[in-house]
Computed example of a mutant assay.
Amino acid sequence: MKRPIKNPNAKGFTLIELLISVALIAIIASLAAPSFTTMIATQRIKGLANEIMTDLSFAKMESVQKNQCIAVDFSAQGYTITQLTTCTTTTGATIKTVNNISASNNSFSPSSGTTYLGIKFEPVRTTATITGTDLVISNTNASTRSLKIVANTMGRAEICSPSATITGFKPC
Protein backbone atom coordinates (compact mmCIF):
# COMPACT_ATOMS: atom_id res chain seq x y z
CA MET A 1 0.00 0.00 0.00
CA LYS A 2 1.35 3.35 -1.00
CA ARG A 3 1.49 6.18 1.44
CA PRO A 4 -0.02 9.38 0.17
CA ILE A 5 2.28 12.40 -0.17
CA LYS A 6 1.38 14.79 2.59
CA ASN A 7 2.55 17.96 0.84
CA PRO A 8 2.90 17.67 -2.92
CA ASN A 9 4.20 21.27 -3.14
CA ALA A 10 7.17 20.66 -0.79
CA LYS A 11 10.26 22.58 -1.86
CA GLY A 12 13.85 21.41 -1.68
CA PHE A 13 16.83 20.22 -3.67
CA THR A 14 17.07 16.97 -5.47
CA LEU A 15 20.14 14.83 -5.04
CA ILE A 16 21.36 15.64 -8.56
CA GLU A 17 21.06 19.41 -7.96
CA LEU A 18 23.03 19.06 -4.73
CA LEU A 19 25.79 17.00 -6.42
CA ILE A 20 26.13 19.52 -9.25
CA SER A 21 26.43 22.38 -6.73
CA VAL A 22 29.12 20.55 -4.76
CA ALA A 23 31.02 19.75 -7.99
CA LEU A 24 30.95 23.43 -9.06
CA ILE A 25 32.21 24.57 -5.66
CA ALA A 26 35.05 22.01 -5.83
CA ILE A 27 36.08 23.21 -9.31
CA ILE A 28 36.11 26.86 -8.23
CA ALA A 29 38.10 26.03 -5.07
CA SER A 30 40.69 24.07 -7.05
CA LEU A 31 41.16 27.06 -9.38
CA ALA A 32 41.64 29.43 -6.43
CA ALA A 33 44.06 27.22 -4.43
CA PRO A 34 47.27 28.32 -6.22
CA SER A 35 46.41 31.95 -5.56
CA PHE A 36 46.02 31.22 -1.85
CA THR A 37 49.37 29.42 -1.76
CA THR A 38 51.14 32.44 -3.27
CA MET A 39 49.26 34.83 -0.99
CA ILE A 40 50.22 32.87 2.14
CA ALA A 41 53.86 32.70 1.04
CA THR A 42 53.88 36.46 0.39
CA GLN A 43 52.42 37.12 3.84
CA ARG A 44 55.14 34.95 5.40
CA ILE A 45 57.81 36.99 3.61
CA LYS A 46 56.21 40.24 4.81
CA GLY A 47 55.92 38.92 8.36
CA LEU A 48 59.58 37.91 8.52
CA ALA A 49 60.70 41.23 7.02
CA ASN A 50 58.64 43.16 9.57
CA GLU A 51 60.02 41.02 12.41
CA ILE A 52 63.56 41.79 11.26
CA MET A 53 62.79 45.51 11.09
CA THR A 54 61.39 45.39 14.63
CA ASP A 55 64.48 43.57 15.89
CA LEU A 56 66.80 46.05 14.16
CA SER A 57 64.98 48.94 15.83
CA PHE A 58 65.17 47.07 19.13
CA ALA A 59 68.93 46.56 18.71
CA LYS A 60 69.50 50.24 17.97
CA MET A 61 67.47 51.33 21.00
CA GLU A 62 69.22 48.79 23.24
CA SER A 63 72.55 50.20 22.11
CA VAL A 64 71.55 53.69 23.17
CA GLN A 65 69.82 52.59 26.39
CA LYS A 66 72.65 50.35 27.62
CA ASN A 67 75.38 52.57 26.15
CA GLN A 68 77.02 49.51 24.57
CA CYS A 69 77.54 48.25 21.06
CA ILE A 70 74.90 45.82 19.82
CA ALA A 71 75.53 43.58 16.82
CA VAL A 72 72.99 41.89 14.58
CA ASP A 73 74.49 39.12 12.46
CA PHE A 74 72.57 37.21 9.78
CA SER A 75 73.24 33.73 8.45
CA ALA A 76 71.40 31.26 6.23
CA GLN A 77 69.55 29.85 9.27
CA GLY A 78 68.53 33.10 10.98
CA TYR A 79 70.09 35.94 12.95
CA THR A 80 71.55 36.75 16.34
CA ILE A 81 71.46 39.96 18.39
CA THR A 82 74.52 40.26 20.64
CA GLN A 83 75.53 42.81 23.28
CA LEU A 84 79.27 43.26 22.66
CA THR A 85 81.75 43.76 25.48
CA THR A 86 83.42 46.59 23.54
CA CYS A 87 82.79 48.07 20.11
CA THR A 88 86.03 46.56 18.78
CA THR A 89 85.20 42.96 19.74
CA THR A 90 82.91 40.50 18.04
CA THR A 91 81.85 38.51 21.11
CA GLY A 92 79.47 39.19 23.94
CA ALA A 93 76.21 38.18 25.54
CA THR A 94 73.49 36.94 23.22
CA ILE A 95 70.28 38.91 23.62
CA LYS A 96 68.13 37.14 21.04
CA THR A 97 68.55 34.34 18.51
CA VAL A 98 66.14 33.61 15.68
CA ASN A 99 66.85 30.26 14.02
CA ASN A 100 65.11 27.86 11.70
CA ILE A 101 63.50 30.43 9.44
CA SER A 102 63.16 27.69 6.83
CA ALA A 103 60.34 26.10 8.89
CA SER A 104 57.90 28.39 7.06
CA ASN A 105 59.71 27.92 3.70
CA ASN A 106 61.40 31.32 4.05
CA SER A 107 65.08 31.79 3.26
CA PHE A 108 67.76 34.47 3.56
CA SER A 109 70.40 35.21 0.98
CA PRO A 110 72.85 38.06 0.44
CA SER A 111 71.86 40.34 -2.44
CA SER A 112 75.33 39.82 -3.94
CA GLY A 113 78.31 37.69 -3.04
CA THR A 114 78.31 35.27 -0.14
CA THR A 115 78.79 37.55 2.88
CA TYR A 116 75.64 37.89 4.97
CA LEU A 117 74.56 41.21 6.43
CA GLY A 118 76.03 42.25 9.75
CA ILE A 119 75.15 45.49 11.57
CA LYS A 120 76.91 46.88 14.63
CA PHE A 121 75.07 49.72 16.36
CA GLU A 122 77.30 52.21 18.18
CA PRO A 123 75.68 54.06 21.11
CA VAL A 124 77.65 57.32 21.14
CA ARG A 125 77.01 58.56 17.62
CA THR A 126 74.00 56.28 17.08
CA THR A 127 75.56 55.11 13.83
CA ALA A 128 75.99 51.65 12.42
CA THR A 129 78.91 49.76 10.96
CA ILE A 130 77.69 47.52 8.16
CA THR A 131 79.42 44.43 6.83
CA GLY A 132 78.22 42.18 4.05
CA THR A 133 75.50 43.01 1.57
CA ASP A 134 71.78 43.68 1.73
CA LEU A 135 69.62 40.77 2.81
CA VAL A 136 67.05 39.21 0.47
CA ILE A 137 64.10 37.30 1.95
CA SER A 138 62.25 34.85 -0.27
CA ASN A 139 59.89 31.89 0.05
CA THR A 140 60.01 28.60 -1.86
CA ASN A 141 56.23 28.73 -2.49
CA ALA A 142 56.48 32.15 -4.16
CA SER A 143 59.85 32.02 -5.87
CA THR A 144 59.28 35.16 -7.94
CA ARG A 145 58.50 37.28 -4.89
CA SER A 146 61.06 38.61 -2.44
CA LEU A 147 61.85 41.52 -0.15
CA LYS A 148 65.19 43.16 0.53
CA ILE A 149 66.42 44.65 3.82
CA VAL A 150 68.69 47.62 3.14
CA ALA A 151 70.63 49.25 6.01
CA ASN A 152 72.60 52.49 6.01
CA THR A 153 75.37 53.90 8.20
CA MET A 154 72.92 56.00 10.19
CA GLY A 155 71.48 52.78 11.58
CA ARG A 156 68.28 52.99 9.57
CA ALA A 157 66.98 49.96 7.77
CA GLU A 158 64.20 49.81 5.21
CA ILE A 159 62.35 47.19 3.26
CA CYS A 160 62.07 47.34 -0.51
CA SER A 161 60.75 44.98 -3.16
CA PRO A 162 63.15 43.91 -5.92
CA SER A 163 61.44 44.40 -9.28
CA ALA A 164 58.31 45.57 -7.40
CA THR A 165 57.11 41.97 -6.98
CA ILE A 166 55.35 42.63 -3.65
CA THR A 167 52.99 45.57 -3.42
CA GLY A 168 53.12 48.00 -0.52
CA PHE A 169 56.90 48.40 -0.65
CA LYS A 170 58.96 50.71 -2.79
CA PRO A 171 60.86 49.03 -5.63
CA CYS A 172 64.64 48.60 -5.33
Rank of each mutant, 00 (worst) to 15 (best):
T126C: 04
E122W: 03
P123E: 00
T126S: 13
N139Q: 04
F121T: 02
I101K: 02
F108N: 08
S104R: 11
Y116G: 03
L117H: 06
N100Q: 15
I101S: 06
S102C: 10
A142S: 12
T140L: 08
T115E: 07
S109Q: 12
N106Q: 07
K96L: 07
S102I: 10
A128V: 04
G132E: 02
K120N: 02
S112I: 14
T129A: 14
L135E: 01
D134K: 09
L117S: 03
K96W: 01
F108K: 03
G118C: 00
P110R: 05
P123D: 04
V98C: 08
E122I: 15
R125I: 02
Y116L: 03
G113K: 07
S112Y: 10
T140F: 07
R125M: 06
R125E: 00
T94H: 03
T115H: 05
N141I: 08
E122Q: 14
I137L: 08
I119W: 00
G113P: 07
K96M: 00
R125P: 00
F108P: 01
N139H: 07
T129K: 13
A103C: 08
V124H: 12
I95Q: 09
I130K: 03
A93F: 12
D134P: 03
I137V: 07
T115N: 10
N141R: 11
V136R: 13
S107L: 09
S143G: 08
T140Y: 06
V136N: 07
T97M: 05
I119L: 11
N139I: 04
K96F: 01
I95D: 05
I101V: 07
G92R: 04
S107I: 08
S104I: 10
A103D: 15
S138E: 05
G118A: 15
A93H: 12
R125W: 06
G92C: 10
S102A: 08
P110H: 02
V136L: 13
T127L: 14
T131W: 07
T129W: 10
N100H: 12
T133H: 09
A128R: 04
T129V: 13
E122G: 07
Y116Q: 03
R125L: 09
I101A: 10
T94D: 01
T97G: 01
G118V: 05
T97F: 00
S143C: 05
P110A: 02
S109W: 01
I119Y: 04
T97P: 03
T140R: 14
G113A: 01
V124K: 15
T115W: 06
S143V: 15
G118Y: 06
T140D: 06
N105S: 12
F108W: 09
L135V: 05
K120R: 11
L117M: 03
T126P: 00
I95L: 12
G118D: 01
T114P: 09
